[in-house]
Simulated scan of single mutants.
Amino acid sequence: MTKFGELIGADKPVLIDFYADQDEVENSLDTLRDVAAALGISARVIKIDIQKNETLADALRVKGNPTFMIYKNGEMKWRQTGFLDASTLIDLVKQYV
């Protein structure tokens, strides 16, 4: 959890995708690559496997897959469960740049 605290403490937005392997078809890695490419250095895009990080997922009450969160300066700014396309995610993150 210490590493997570360091990750979300950045002064630029961090988009986190909590996913599970069985959801990889719908929760496409290509979507996140597109988001990361569009945002460049203005934000970070991270994928976290719920099954490998159960303690963190439980602490954040992640119940559905995928669950997206945006953090900035250690504070959660936005959260939603369910698949979103790249352009929607890009627009959401840009609000916090």
Rank of each mutant, 00 (worst) to 15 (best):
F4N: 08
F4Q: 06
F4C: 14
G5N: 14
G5P: 10
E6G: 09
E6D: 12
L7W: 07
L7S: 09
I8L: 07
G9N: 13
G9R: 06
G9S: 14
G9Y: 06
A10S: 14
D11L: 10
K12S: 03
K12A: 02
P13M: 03
P13I: 05
V14P: 02
V14D: 04
V14M: 05
V14Q: 03
L15Q: 05
I16H: 00
D17C: 04
F18D: 08
Q22W: 08
Q22R: 05
D23N: 08
E24C: 08
E24V: 03
E24W: 03
V25A: 15
V25R: 11
E26T: 06
E26C: 00
E26S: 07
E26D: 07
N27Y: 08
S28T: 04
L29H: 09
L29M: 12
D30Y: 00
T31H: 07
L32M: 09
L32C: 05
L32N: 02
L32D: 05
R33T: 15
R33S: 14
D34M: 03
D34A: 03
V35S: 12
A36Y: 08
A37D: 15
A37Y: 12
L39N: 11
L39Y: 12
G40E: 08
I41A: 06
A43P: 05
R44D: 09
V45K: 03
I46N: 09
I46K: 13
K47S: 15
I48R: 07
D49I: 01
I50G: 00
I50T: 07
Q51Y: 00
K52I: 01
K52Y: 00
E54C: 13
E54Y: 11
L56M: 07
L56H: 06
D58G: 12
D58I: 10
A59V: 01
R61T: 02
V62W: 00
N65R: 07
P66Q: 05
P66C: 09
T67G: 07
F68A: 07
I70A: 06
K72A: 03
N73F: 06
N73Q: 09
N73D: 10
M76F: 09
K77N: 01
K77W: 00
K77C: 03
W78H: 13
W78Y: 12
R79D: 11
Q80R: 11
Q80I: 08
T81F: 09
G82P: 14
G82K: 04
G82A: 12
F83G: 09
F83Y: 11
F83P: 02
L84N: 01
L84I: 02
L84S: 04
L84C: 04
L84W: 00
L84F: 00
D85N: 15
A86T: 03
S87Q: 10
S87C: 01
S87R: 05
S87G: 04
T88P: 00
T88G: 04
T88N: 11
T88Q: 14
T88V: 15
T88M: 14
L89K: 11
L89Y: 08
L89E: 14
L89I: 15
I90K: 06
I90T: 12
D91H: 11
L92M: 13
L92N: 13
V93K: 05
K94L: 10
K94I: 07
K94R: 13
Q95W: 09
Q95E: 15
Q95L: 10
Y96H: 06
V97Q: 14
